[in-house]
Simulated scan of single mutants.
Amino acid sequence: MIESNHRRPADWSMVRLATFIITIVVGFNLVRNSDQSFQQIEAPFQDVKAPSSLSMHITGGLPDSDSSSVQQGNIDPKVVYGHVHEAKTGGTSLNGMLAARYERVCGNKGYSFDAYQSNVRRKQKIQNDTVKQLKRGFHRSRVPHFIMDERGYENCDWISKEIGWFWWKKFVKWPLHIELHVPCREPVDHLMSKCNFKGNTFDCSGDLATEVEKCMLKHARARFHYNLTNLNNTSIKCFDYNITFTKYMDLMDKTLQRKRMPIEYAFRATNRRRKFATECIWQNDTLRLAVEKYLIEKYPYYNFCDACIGSKEDMFAA
């Protein structure tokens, strides 16, 4: 008698049961091993905390926990503010402080969206970040212009650029109006700051023009030009450099939207400490006035500021 190759129904039931048991056991082991693997991966990150030395900088009595009371700002929805970053007018700190406290700040010295962690790293003296890896000499608190342009400016309320005046021409056909803010610093004090930055000493017995020009930075005529006053879709206002971190900051606090999680700005110095006692120009009023006159006549920035401060275009004129 030839034995049939077909198993009886009872045999198939045993096969199915054995297969089911094996599947359950194997599946359980896989899940258990996976859980252990994920626990091993996650473990190094479980205790990461912001350093206790970092204090949140809360402006205007902003509550710590009630995010519903975050100030929404009073910005005109049809206006974008532009900061003409003239060198040695406190622009680095201004940009950094605004990015740390308010939303939609876009500047090559700081953006709102990544300012928190950028300041955490700076306080921890961590110098490296992905921007620095991309371009030497730059980082998230000194953003290359090509990265800024790639990100775009459509979601910015306040823009700061250390760049030639012509860059602002990109907004002449924008649907939003651009209001430029120019910080104006007293000419001779500004010049002495530039001398200090370059490590030069102003020689009061030397040729006036030579002494002035050796302290001027290469972009002294580039960032501001009177053409800025004639751009379509653009208005321009000025403010006294001395009130940058008082009245101007107060105005921005009422204008820009506060962050739910602001952070104290980690200051970084860009100048060596000045030695005013060694600056001979302050002991020679005739020379000081002559230098001031030279700067106002030769440089559009000083000429503009001389006319603007105290005028109707002065943001804080009485």
Rank of each mutant, 00 (worst) to 15 (best):
I178P: 02
K169N: 09
I178T: 12
N196W: 13
N196C: 06
C184S: 11
M192Q: 14
C184K: 14
E179F: 01
K173E: 10
I178L: 14
F171A: 02
W174G: 14
W167I: 04
K173C: 10
C195P: 06
C184F: 14
V188C: 08
M192H: 09
H177D: 14
V188F: 01
P187A: 00
K169I: 02
R185N: 03
C195S: 08
K170E: 05
W165A: 13
K169V: 00
L180H: 01
H181T: 04
V182T: 07
E179W: 09
V182Y: 08
K169R: 14
N196A: 06
F171L: 10
W174H: 14
L180C: 13
H177W: 02
K194A: 13
H177P: 09
V172W: 01
W174A: 12
W165M: 01
S193N: 02
H181W: 07
N196F: 01
L176R: 13
K173R: 08
H181K: 15
C184A: 08
L191E: 11
R185W: 07
W167S: 04
L180F: 14
E186T: 14
P175N: 13
H190L: 02
H181V: 03
K194Q: 15
L180Y: 12
W167E: 13
H190P: 07
V172C: 05
P183V: 00
C195R: 05
F166Y: 15
H177G: 07
I178N: 08
P183H: 09
P175S: 12
L180P: 08
E186L: 09
M192R: 14
K169Y: 04
W174R: 11
V172G: 00
W174C: 05
K194E: 15
D189W: 07
V172I: 01
V172N: 11
K170F: 11
V172D: 00
C195F: 07
V188H: 09
P187E: 00
F166S: 15
H190Y: 05
V188S: 12
L180E: 13
P187Q: 06
W167Q: 09
C195I: 08
W165L: 02
K170W: 10
K170M: 12
E186Y: 13
I178Y: 01
